[in-house]
Nucleic acid binder design. Structure first.
Length: 794
DNA sequence: TTATGGAGAATAACG
DNA sequence: TTCTCCATAA
């Protein structure tokens, strides 16, 4: 997309004085009145200029949502409606907020430091909480726990309750508590019946205990960053009104992803002046399982009376075919606000969306790999190619294949940098040095590396700490002075405490990045990994080095720790050309020339668990995910269906996804593929794992007779028989391998039970049963189900 | 304290 | 099937 602000002739930023608000505003005043509005379409322009009152911008995929948001902020600043620090602008991810900062920076041609309230929900929540921590029972230097800390804490509490940790896993409790927090429920607000879902009512006791424990630890989890804000605003109206006065304008990105807590938070803040602008797309709401409420966006007009709604429907990203395919698919969802995307890109040569059926996941990887190589030969940049999968286990076959092909790829997502064990251990050391009362940090590393402080010793420290209500570190110091410990443990613990004291004194004398390295060396942590001979040990050391490097970018160790919990993510700085492999979820917001969408099979996509757990609601979310997937593509979207897939180590045969039938015939092409073996069937016994009874209403077998997919298959079959080859020619039967099977099932059976047949892959066998044109055949290698056109009478 | 085996789980993932 | 977590034994 051409850069909107490139022509606003702003002088380079070095002419500006950093941190000088007047500088920015003066600069804006000198600008041509509204040059930044040029190039916006009428709807975008309206969205930018409708400054007063609540506004909902329904921005379809690729319609310039970020551009509207940033221009709107620019407009507020340029018209001097508010100063940079009077605008609250929230996003979900650090990445999004960084991008907004960058773009606003380009717009106003300078520093955006004045925009202190542009950030993620969480980072803004922390900022507010730290200012008023005492009012909610915290100290302003509270620690932020991540999910790992949470689980560890909950484990302790579950044990303290005398519950069987096997039966009531901490992970599950964490799920419940997160869920409650997402819905803005503090312990006293949890509905009775839900309290009983975990350990017969202990769930609520544990939630209460957990919150109490957090207060003692002077800590918050991510959910609290919002929940405690809500409490603060409700219990201290004066504080809330100070923010009402502060924030003249509120902007929210990705509104469809907000959960109840975030929604309440926004409502409280927008209560007084109503200048709230939410941008979102109900069709891209894919985080229901994380607590996001599509309802928030659907209800906007009711929540904010007098709200204006503007739809952005001009898509500047994709070709007509891609857009039509996605649009048609999404119309199968009920309960949408409804948008019609219009393509702005004209391309007579544009490729249709393709659907290719292949034999199994290996062939899928091979076919896609070949396609990518071909595209590469045609001069396409690998960075513009992505493979979007539903579940991460699908990534493996691609990785395997690309490694053997020597094709550069990168996996996006996966374990985040600061979630890795070695990074968390290192951080725990730093935390314990900076804050001796950080029990979780201390508990994590007392015996890492192993220094003879096993379960027994740790339990003693815990007991004393609990008894005297003092931090672990203090209790440990006390224990060392007694005879209660075994001599070995005692001297070891004494040594460790001595080291901590030593490091603490160095806090003020040594450069913090050096100190970090010293801590890791002296504690023996680095050595531990050097000795470790597992293949990933070197990588871990590399990560630690990188961690130390990144510390240098912060002013001090405490300020580093402050930031890391919230804003450290891994932008792997990779500059090599590489194909991206990622999940559909992590692809939201991105775009690529070519998008490969493998695994469109029932049970995988839509995912069985989504259907089982949330029924039709789940199905609609899956469909939105499909919509997101297709709309990532600028020029090419290629969908693949495998007839067989390896699931938990077993080959299962699969049914093409119902979403395929929801694609418009006109814009989709069934693509042929070279195949090693042709045919329908599975090497496993027992047929599909996705029984038709599992589906909500429609039976895919019945319903697909009159669907576009079936008709396509028919047409294709006709063409195919004209051109001759039907089997044995190493050309697969594509989608009709499945669909044709249905089409002729009411015709006369060509084979009889007991007949001897020959199959190109499986050899000779005997027909065991006949269902339409699907045969169950006993081969030497076992029973298989195959389509009759792939066997010959013998 | 470490090694090993068995059991159990395996949708997606922001801060 | 494969990974992780935990308990048990050496």
């Amino acid at each position: 997309m051409p850069d909107l602000f490139a022509n606003n002739s702003a002088p380079p930023s070095h002419e500006m004085q950093e941190d000088d608000q007047e500088g920015i505003r003066a600069k804006l005043a000198r600008m041509h009145p509204t040059p930044y509005l040029e190039g916006l379409n009428p709807e975008q322009k309206e969205a930018v200029e409708s400054l007063d009152g609540p506004l909902l911008v329904l921005a379809g995929a690729g319609t310039g949502k970020t551009r509207v948001l940033t221009t709107r902020i620019g407009h507020i600043l340029a018209t001097r409606r508010a100063a940079p620090w009077q605008i609250l602008s929230v996003t979900f991810t650090n990445k999004a907020s960084r991008e907004m900062k960058d773009r606003i920076g380009r717009l106003i041609g300078g520093s955006v430091e004045g925009m202190q309230w542009l950030g993620t929900f969480h980072s803004i929540g922390v900022k507010i909480l730290r200012r008023h921590a005492e009012l909610v029972g915290l100290k302003s230097n509270f620690t932020i726990l991540d999910s790992d800390d949470q689980i560890r804490l909950m484990k302790q509490l579950i044990q303290a309750q005398g519950l069987d940790e096997k039966r009531w896993p901490a992970r599950q409790l964490a799920g419940f508590i997160d869920g409650w927090k997402n819905r803005g429920l503090s312990p006293e607000q949890v509905p009775q019946d839900e309290a009983f879902l975990f350990a017969q009512g202990s769930g609520l006791i544990l939630y209460t205990a957990y919150q109490a424990r957090l207060k003692i630890l002077n800590a918050c989890d991510f959910g609290d960053l919002l929940l405690e804000c809500l409490r603060l605003f409700r219990e201290h109206p004066d504080v809330l009104s100070s923010y009402h006065n502060k924030f003249r304008y509120i902007l929210v990105d990705e509104y469809q992803d907000t959960n109840v807590a975030q929604y309440l938070w926004l409502r409280l803040l927008a209560q007084s002046n109503h200048n709230i602008c939410c941008v979102g797309d109900d069709d891209q709401s894919i985080y229901g399982w994380r607590g996001a409420e599509v309802d928030n966006i659907l209800r906007f007009e009711a929540d904010f009376p007098g709200a204006k709604v503007i739809r952005l429907e001009r898509n500047y990203r994709s070709t007509e075919h891609i857009l039509a395919a996605a649009s048609h698919l999404i119309t199968f969802n009920q309960g949408r606000l409804g948008k019609t995307l219009h393509h702005q890109i004209e391309d007579d040569e544009a490729e249709k969306v393709t659907v290719t059926s292949i034999w199994d996941s290996e062939e899928e990887a091979r076919t896609i790999g070949d396609q990518i190589e071909a595209q590469q030969r045609d001069g396409h940049n690998l960075n513009e190619i992505a493979i979007l999968v539903r579940a991460s286990f699908q990534m493996r076959s691609f990785e395997d294949r690309f490694v053997t092909m020597g094709l550069n790829y990168r996996v996006i997502g996966g374990p985040r940098f600061y979630e890795r064990a070695e990074i968390r251990d290192a951080l725990a050391y730093f935390r314990a040095v900076v804050q001796s009362a950080d029990d979780l940090a201390f508990g994590r590393i007392v015996n890492t590396p192993r220094r003879g402080l096993g379960d027994a010793t740790v339990r003693q420290i815990h007991a004393l700490a609990r008894h005297q209500e003092i931090p672990l570190m203090e209790a440990a110091a006390e224990l060392v002075g007694t005879e209660d410990l075994k001599p070995r443990a005692r001297s070891s613990l004494k040594g460790l405490l001595g080291q901590f004291n030593h490091w603490r004194t160095m806090l003020s004398t040594m450069k913090h990045s050096e100190l970090a390295e010293v801590i890791l060396d002296e504690s023996g942590y680095t050595e531990m990994w050097q000795k470790e001979k597992s293949p990933d040990a070197p990588g871990k050391l590399e990560n630690l080095k990188e961690l130390v490097r990144s510390i240098a970018e912060y002013e001090s160790l405490p300020s580093f720790l402050e930031h890391i919990a919230l804003v450290m993510d891994r932008d792997s700085g990779e500059t090599n050309e590489a194909v991206s492999i990622m999940t559909l979820h992590s692809a939201k917001g991105l775009e690529f020339d070519s998008v490969f969408l493998p695994g469109w099979e029932e049970g995988l996509f839509p995912h069985q668990r989504a259907l089982d757990e949330t029924g039709n609601k789940g199905l609609e979310e899956e469909r939105r995910l499909a919509y997101v997937g297709i709309t990532r593509a600028k020029k090419r979207a290629k969908i693949y269906v495998a007839q067989n897939r390896l699931i938990h180590g077993k080959w299962q045969n699969s049914i093409p996804s119902r979403f395929l039938d929801e694609l418009p015939n006109k814009h989709v092409e069934i693509e042929e593929t070279q195949s090693t073996y042709g045919g329908y069937g599975a090497s496993g016994v027992g047929g599909s794992i996705y029984g038709k009874s599992r589906f909500d209403k429609s039976d895919p077998f019945e319903s697909s007779y009159d669907t576009p997919g079936w008709k396509r298959a028919q047409a294709n079959k006709a063409n195919r028989s004209k051109s001759g080859s039907s089997h044995g020619s190493h050309t697969s039967h594509l989608i009709e391998g499945e669909l044709v099977a249905k089409s002729v099932s009411d015709g006369p059976a060509k084979y009889a039970v007991g007949e001897r047949v020959f199959h190109i892959k499986f050899g000779y066998g005997e027909v065991k049963s006949v269902e339409g044109n699907k045969l169950t055949i006993q081969f030497q290698t076992g029973q298989k189900r195959v389509v009759d056109s792939f066997v010959e009478k013998h």
